[in-house]
Design a protein around this nucleic acid. Structure first.
Length: 445
DNA sequence: TCTGGGGTCCTAGGACCC
DNA sequence: TCTGGGGTCCTAGGACCC
């Protein structure tokens, strides 16, 4: 029997922080986006205060005083590392996994009848995850990925499921589950389509599953129709165990403060271009073009608005930092205009391909072996001494465009200096958190 | 005062071809 | 007066995801 599981870490970034800061347990906690702008993760207590996903922090800052809300800057080194642990444990337990996002993975549970009761198996997996990583997860199981998502959501929401809901093994629960889910909460149905569905009288997942194919196709296109098929229990999405090579790579940031000088935006773009080149090299790819863009502050209606972008071809395709940086500066120079206060800029590397798939160009210069060696040395140095140890350009550490981060927690798992110290005997007052809750980790082979 | 970043896929329309 | 019928490729924009 074909079945998909969806394992989703509960309030993932908050849970990661709580592993090393158990004092945050039971408190309302939010994790902030870059520049400490928006709340991108919320503990249950924070959700109960009515704090929405991606809610601007300044709108909820008053909860800090009134309700003891704790707001932390995001610590992606920590979350990425914790995610890798979670995913490797899942890979060891299920016959196939698809890492869907930093905190979610689909499992292939087909042919797992041998485990007997699926719900018990999932409960055990959940408990293993909690013991080995400290991260609480919810698990949904169903015949299609869309339904597994739906089951997962109910498992997370409804306390009586105890974090696990198997709709594949209990088809009699399916209709009730669909009726309890609003269309807007279906995977693949966003705000726009939810509005259209509601107008047409399709308020719940059950309603939408009964909608006419022609109507769905017309209003939501091929994508919408696939979602509806999956709601009806017909799988159209397979497990993608090998991720497709990415096609684009974007590095962009809002600036800490607006900047109006060419030199400042250029410094930012040089930094972003370097970082994007590194990411593309790490994936063993080269880029055929670079798209550079910049924007003013769209929330400041009182200021002159502008946005500019340009695409520069990279011939032949490359991931070499100096070549990408040069192209980016060329693009920026071409599109620059004075007299605006720029708030955000970025670069998107496009047409990513593996170097061996680049069509041969009769007139192309021979590969620059020295440049390639230089890039390899640069990446090695940065791997050894930390990102940014060797870099292009001279970005002032206090430049206006640099992002603001008020309260980042230590890189508990990825920097030697930050690794918590476990002591036996008398508890010490300086790091009670780490002592109490160091994750045990899976046993070494 | 203060509002994230990084992706994917699909569609419609235009240019161009025979 | 009468004015085809496919194709393909590219791009911009819009929807979605976390």
């Amino acid at each position: 029997m074909q079945a998909f599981g969806l394992v989703d870490c509960n309030n993932f970034y908050v849970s990661c922080e709580r592993v090393f800061r158990p004092d945050l347990e039971g408190k309302p906690v939010v994790i902030l986006s870059n520049n400490d702008g928006c709340c991108v993760a919320r503990s249950n207590e924070a959700k109960a205060l009515g704090i929405g996903m991606a809610e601007p922090f300044f709108k909820v800052r008053h909860f800090v005083d009134s309700h003891g809300l704790v707001a932390l800057s995001s610590n992606y080194a920590l979350y990425g590392d914790m995610s890798a642990m979670v995913m490797s444990i899942l890979a060891d337990h299920a016959p196939g996994t698809e890492v869907y996002s930093i905190d979610e993975s689909f499992l292939d549970l087909s042919g797992m009848d041998c485990v007997g009761d699926m719900t018990s198996w999932c409960r055990e997996l959940r408990e293993t995850m909690r013991r080995w990583t400290g991260i609480p997860v919810s698990i949904g199981v169903a015949r299609t990925k869309t339904l597994a998502k739906l089951a997962n959501r109910l498992a997370k929401k409804s306390p009586k499921t105890d974090g696990v809901l198997d709709l594949a093994g209990h088809p009699e629960w399916l209709t009730a589950a669909l009726r309890r889910t609003n269309v807007g909460d279906i995977w693949g149905i966003g705000k726009q389509w939810a509005g259209i569905c509601n107008l047409a009288g399709h308020r719940t997942a059950w309603d939408l599953s009964q909608a006419e194919d022609g109507w769905v196709r017309k209003t939501m296109g091929a994508v919408g129709l696939r979602t509806v098929m999956e709601l009806r229990g017909t799988p159209v999405n397979d497990l993608e165990t090998v991720p497709d090579a990415r096609q684009t790579c974007c590095v962009s940031r809002s600036f800490g403060d607006t900047v109006d000088s060419f030199a400042d935006v250029r410094d930012a773009i040089v930094t972003f271009a370097s970082r994007a080149s590194e990411k593309v090299r790490r994936d063993g790819l080269v880029a055929g073009a670079a798209h550079v863009f910049m924007q003013t502050d769209r929330f400041r209606r009182d200021q002159a608005q502008n946005s500019a972008s340009t695409t520069v071809r990279l011939c032949p395709p490359t991931a070499s930092t100096p070549l990408v940086v040069n192209a980016a500066i060329k693009g920026l120079t071409a599109m620059w205009s004075d007299g605006f206060r720029w708030r955000k800029a970025g670069i998107i590397l496009l047409d990513l391909v593996r170097p061996e798939d680049v069509p041969r160009d009769l007139f192309a210069p021979p590969p620059n072996v020295r440049a390639e060696k230089l890039m390899a040395a640069l990446d090695d140095a940065n791997a050894k001494f930390g990102r940014g140890a060797v870099m292009f350009g001279l970005a002032a550490p206090d430049a206006a465009w640099k992002m603001k981060q008020g309260s980042v927690t230590p890189s508990w798992t990825t920097r030697w200096e930050d690794i918590p110290i476990a002591r036996l005997g008398q508890p010490s007052s300086d790091r009670p958190a780490a002592q109490a809750r160091m994750p045990r980790g899976p046993p070494s082979p």
